[in-house]
């Protein structure tokens, strides 16, 4: 079973090593891990996607809880959670294919963020399924390079995953739907998961050649 853990940690040196080391030592299987600072600069949030049976997933939670620098561990699941990943995909794109790719990008609300003579860089944001669907369609054009973030996730509704409410954007009741997040994520700043450095486990860390957006 695959489960997403949202871990609120003290923003201190060594915390990432502690968490990653724990997974390594206990043989827990990480699919992705994303870290970013929260609205409170002394705290960071890690989103870790783990594959394991019930016993393993329970141990993951308990062993994480046991770390002194970990404040709170929550499981974000199913429709209760909004989850997002971001991928930058460099696709083979001779001028004759550009329009087709652009069209595809529009359907997925993805964006073309860099254009070179024979390739494009597409930025796609969404839940796992959406990113996977986009990738398989882009594969038909020929994918040259992929860089992905790990998953980040947040509970729906007013529920907060630990920590003090500090920033009104988060504690303002009501629901933030996926679109809202998506739109904010499209601003000039990358989503929080990327800022703090991300350890995408599925894809090796690569240097993306994309130019910064204008």
């Amino acid at each position: 079973m695959i489960q997403t853990f949202s871990i609120l940690v003290e923003n201190q040196p060594g915390v990432l090593t502690r968490v990653a080391g724990l997974f390594g030592r206990r043989g827990f299987n990480i699919q992705s891990l994303a870290v970013g600072v929260t609205q409170d600069p002394t705290l960071s949030r890690m989103t870790v996607v783990v594959d394991g049976d019930d016993r393993v997933l329970e141990q993951v939670k308990k062993q994480l809880d046991k770390l002194v620098n970990v404040l709170k561990v929550s499981v974000l699941e199913g429709p209760e959670a909004i989850s997002r990943e971001l991928a930058l995909v460099r696709v083979y794109a001779p001028p004759s294919q550009r329009a087709a790719i652009q069209q595809l990008a529009d359907i997925f609300r993805a964006r073309i963020v860099d254009v070179a003579r024979r390739s494009l860089v597409v930025e796609v944001t969404g839940d796992q399924d959406k990113v996977a669907a986009m990738m398989s369609l882009l594969a038909e054009f020929g994918i040259i390079e992929v860089v992905r973030t790990g998953r980040i996730a947040m509970a729906r509704g007013g529920r907060q995953v630990g920590g003090k409410a500090m920033c009104n954007a988060q504690s303002k009741g009501g629901t933030h739907d996926g679109e809202g997040l998506l739109r904010r994520g499209r601003g000039s700043r990358a989503p929080a998961g990327v800022q703090g450095g991300c350890l995408g486990v599925r894809e090796p860390r690569e240097r993306a050649g994309a130019k910064p957006e204008g």
């Binding site: 016993r55 141990q59 308990k62 062993q63 809880d65 046991k66």
Partner: peptide
């Protein structure tokens, strides 16, 4: 006293 021991 260590919850992680329970069920480990």
């Amino acid at each position: 006293v260590d919850p992680a021991e329970l069920g480990k």
